[in-house]
Amino acid sequence: MRRHFKAKVIDNNFAAESFKLITLSPASEVSVPLPGQFYMLESGRSTDPLLKRPFSIFRLNDGCLQFLYRVRGKGTTSIAGFNRGDFINVVGPLGKAYPDPEGPFIAVAGGVGIASLYSLLEKKRGKAMLFYGARNVRELICFEEASKLSAKAFSTTDDGSSGVKGLVTDKLSEFIKNEGRSMPVYACGPHPMLKKVAEIAKHNNLKCYVSLEEHMACGIGACLGCVVKSKSSAVEYEYKRVCKEGPVFDADEVLW
C-alpha cells in the first residue's frame, strides 16, 4: 500500500473562525489510518513554504481523509488556499496510534487537539468521558458531535462562553476525585496541558497516553528534528522521535 500519494481536494471549508476542515480523496489505494496517527500534507506548489506540515487524522469518511486544522502561519495559510479539485501530495499514515482502550476511558482535548482524539471517540462509541477545553465557545469545535460519541462530556472555556470557566485540567482533577474509578487517560493538546494531565494521572495511578507535537521536517524518522526528551534505562535521558516512536507516548516515558 502506498504511503506517499496524490489526493484530490474534495472540500476545504471553514469549520469555525480560523479553523478549516479539509477532505481529501486519495488517487490510489491507501492504508487505513488508526486513531492518533498523522499525515504530512503538502504546503503548496512553490518552495516557500517548503516543508510538508503534520496533521492528525480527524476522520475517515467515505474513503476520504479528513483533517481539522487551525490556520496559524505560512504553511497552514497556504493549505487553507487549496481549492476543490486541486491535487496535493500526501505522506501517511505515520507514527504510533493510541493503544486501544479496553473499556471506558478518559479523553482530554485541548483546542485543536480534538482532531487527534475524535476518531478514537468514534471507534469506541459511548466509552469515553470527554474533557474538552478551548479558548471560547467558537473554538470548541465539534463539541456537540463529540459529546454524542461519548458516555459523558464536559467542556471548559477560558472566558466561560461555554461549559465551566477555567482549565480543562481542573475539571479533570475534580472528576477523578469524585468518580474514583480507574480508567486510562488519552490526551492531546498544548504542551502545558499535557504536562498537567500527566501529573494528574500519575498522582491518581492512572495509565496515561499523550499525543505530542514538535516541529517536523520529514515526518518519517530521517531528520531527527522532532525529538522529545524521554527516560532511558541506560543513560540520563534519550531523545525519541515524535514522528516515529510517537506522536502517542506513554506519559511515563516523557521527561516533562
Binding site: 516557500d48 517548503l50 516541529h215 525529538v227
Partner: peptide, 22 residues
C-alpha cells in the same frame, strides 16, 4: 544525544537545522 529542541525551523525556500549530530 544531540541538541535540545527546537532543532529545526523553516526559512524562505529552506530550513535551518541544529540536530547536534545525534
Amino acid at each position: 544525544t544531540g541538541n535540545p529542541t527546537p532543532r529545526i525551523v523553516e526559512t524562505p525556500s529552506g530550513m535551518l537545522n541544529a540536530i547536534g549530530l545525534q
